[in-house]
Write a protein that binds this DNA or RNA. Sequence first.
DNA 1: AGCCAGGCCAAGC
DNA 2: GCTTGGCATGGC
Length: 207
Amino acid sequence: MMLIFQVYKELLKYYGYQNWWPVHEGQNRIVEVSVGAVLTQNTSWSNVEKSLENLISANCLNFECLVDIDLEVLKNLIKPSGFYNQKAKTLKELSKLFLSKENIEREDLLAVKGIGKETADSILLYALDKPYFVTDSYTKRLFYRMGFIKEKISYDELQSFITESIPKDIDIYKEFHALIVKYCKELCTKKPKCGGCFLSCNFKKVV
DNA sequence: AGCCAGGCCAAGC
DNA sequence: GCTTGGCATGGC
């Protein structure tokens, strides 16, 4: 289904490269991306930013500190991004994994409590530069509305549907997902703003 | 003032 | 196997 790749091209043309996971000055990209991926679960990025700033101020945006730091203190630092009781534990376990294993695989990440498929794939793609396409609720909403998929498609089905339709290229994977998020936040919102849509291929709009 | 945000897990059919 | 409720803050 080349139409999928056409969507990517049009999004890219309209928005340009997103260069996701803005890394704060002087921070380790792998740590920041991995922590950000956990913190942003069902949470807006603006809230995640506050937590990241807190961690940086506390000199704790690194796996060593995250393992050692008192759990309650960590909860307090990441409080702005919500679900802090579970996310604090997840961050500790994830950090332990990174410190104990050289080559992190998808199954390692999925074994961490609090890390599901989407978070695992985000870390694999954006932190570890491995070709795993990230699908989220936005991705599903967009392609469902365009009539490409059924509403109740599973994560695995949606992921393979997309990867079978686009080149296996890490940079395309990174940009496409980021562009989908951008587009869905701006236009393909819960109540879609189809009037402002620029995609030529959205032949099946939902108003 | 409610709804929503870059999910995940455990419990219950 | 699929559905549901709980988790929590901040922005609009």
